[in-house]
Design a protein around this nucleic acid. Sequence first.
DNA 1: GAGTTTGAAACT
DNA 2: CAGTTTCAAACTC
Length: 818
Amino acid sequence: MDRTPEANRIAATKSSSISSSPAVQESPFSNFLSNLSPLNTATTASYTQTLLGTNLPTPPVVFTSPHINLQRETSFLERDDIVEAGSEVYKECNTNIVQIQNPSFEEVQLCSPSGCVDEYLAYPVEVDSTCSADLRSQRTNEVPRLLHSGFSPGKESNTEVCDIMFGSPENEAVVLSDQAEKDLPLSSLEMSQAAINQRDGKKTEELSRFIFEKVRESDVNSCLVSRAQNCGENAVKLNRAGCQYDEKNASSQSREDSNERKQRVQKGLVKEGGQNERGIRRHLQFEAAKAYKFTILGNSESPNSLTHDGTNSRSPSILTNLKSLASSHFDNRASSSLQDVSCDTSQFPSSPYESFTSAQIGVNSTTSAPIHSGIGLHLNRISRSTSLSSDIFSSKKSTGYLSTPEQMLEHGSNNIAMNSSSILTSAVSGKIYVYVASNQQESQAVTEANSFTFHSTDTMKPPCHSMLVDQEAAPCEVGMSASQETDEVEELNQLSPKRKRQVQHYQRRDAYMSEGCKRCNCRRSKCLKLYCECFAAGVYCVDSCACVNCYNKPEFEDTVLDIRQQIEARNPLAFTPKVVDNAIDSSPNFTEEQDLTTPSSARHKRGCNCKKSKCLKRYCECFQAKVGCSSACRCEGCKNTFGVTPEPVYNRAKRWEAHPAEKLDNVKGAIACIKAPGIIHYSPTWEGISDISKLTPLSHPCSRTAFSSASSSNSAKIPQAQLSSSQLQPSGAHYDIPYDDTPEILEETSNPTKFVKASSPNQKRVSPPQSRSRLRERSPTGLRSGRKFILQAMPSFPPLTPHRNSNEGTNEIENDDK
DNA sequence: GAGTTTGAAACT
DNA sequence: CAGTTTCAAACTC
């Protein structure tokens, strides 16, 4: 294999203790960063291994949860130990994961590099996200390397799992044996075979029973979470491997087909729709496909280099990884969230694990699950935030779409692999960009979707999957808090009977059409523009759509992908969830007390721009999403009262007008919050720090409410003195604060007349919608991307705080300047 | 169901 | 980047 300059550089970097610069090398902070950064060690090592063909030990891709360690103020020495220990832990955990052994507390500790169980419980998102890779974000080689770093589950485990999951080898389709001879990655094929088996109803019960039992055995949530940390990553690797196979064996054919289709499409000769996908809405596997394209086609690495380990490629441990993911996701908050938002929960299997895993592997069950869209997608509207669930069903949909084994071979493996990848990347997505490329804004921005997607469980509408498949109108239950329902009932009672019926009609329609259940009616956009709700939501149109000349169908996948890429080129966040959960979106350090399913915590990411509807009609995206308008909105005469958190800005404005003194108190509170070591100190991430900006007169100064996205542009106005006294962590985020999400409250203080008009304060948006997002995207990269961000966002500002680590931060800046 | 309104998306 | 056009959903009648 040719060694590219990049490879040489990395190899050299590896041998030189992985330091980006001499200056950094000398910095304790940089060492600290290196220890915290999986890519610095694990990825680079794995990549080096791949390039050099050496048999280096499996790199310790152990996410040492910088947050926790910072929170606990782990010393550098401790961190070194942890990282080193992580190498062993990594292997240990892999073994345990594959074998699905009964977890023990010791194991939990092993899997948790910092030795703390609660850390991952407290930061499930971080844990998951760090283990995931948004393949779409692979602007660098980092992720591919990471994904293909040595993961070699035990053979016994392979056999065990494979046999149980897919039956004995003799029962397998020819595909498997053929692939086995070639020693090709079998992940996707196995998935395909599993789907076939499941479709035939041969293995469903056995599979489900196995999964559920195994999951029950692993009943220690914390362990599952910890496992998911590694499993998520490994699963991504495996999925990636599956995509590889697709690339090698299936993509050429499909690409020919797609090119041909594209040509026909351009000529308008293609007959839209196909029998094979009739009645089935399949999730667009944009991210997977994009990742596949990028990493395979656009990456300098040859496909072969991507898979350096046959065992890796064909490891069935993806299933166990999936299980672990499922376990982790259903664990604690995640499980409740998914269940809460379930669409027709009666159709769910008794066990969420069972349901989740079954869906993932393409079981053609009757399980009805949420679809949500994708980038992961993901309900570009509300439901899109349910990437997890939606992606789950994308797999199932693919299964349905591919009705024959031949199809599975030709398309299925690819699709399923991508689906799997999608599942994993989106479900556990979040902050992989931290380890990808600190300056990959687009990647980060796009990755945000994943993060939001997974996090915004509160807003997810279970994709009425059965409906999508069966084309039967099984109304989704609109996720809504009890209080919200009560309010709506009261409002409804006050309406005239006629109006009441109308409202009820809309509510029913709402429920039915709630994200994932949408049908478009496009006529001129060919369903290839964001006008099309299906396209925007990352799903293919279904037969029940009334669209005309629709190209948003599986057979036009390449076209769809191309169009989507074009759109994303214009706006990287175009396909990200429009509604995000404040709690999740804002910070990974949310607590158990925070109900992720509370719509009130959601907000429209970019905000609406209503002029006449007063945000009281469905024209308003906020209203449609049943979320309150936020500072991100530029609406006029806003009367949107949806949501409690964030409180509608206009309400806050009014309140502040009425109680200017309260504003001052809250400013003080905000400052106090910044200063509070016990509150801010534990969260070294940007997200956590950004919470400061969410202080509102009505909420606790340190609560994660009423996020003000619009404040970012004004954030530079924050007095440095306020921050200089803070106990912020020495991460990049530390310096991000004043330049991004400046507390709206602070600005309002100096401009009390700002809210005379009952409208969103962000009518005068200073920065593009994605600007803030990008900044915030960059920020969570925290330790990794801090330097980049510092350069870009605050080149002229000195370190803001006398924090003990401020010197390191200064060094970082200085180093970057050099 | 036709026509109108609305606001996001796309375009210039 | 602001203004305009296009588009499809939402809404009204």
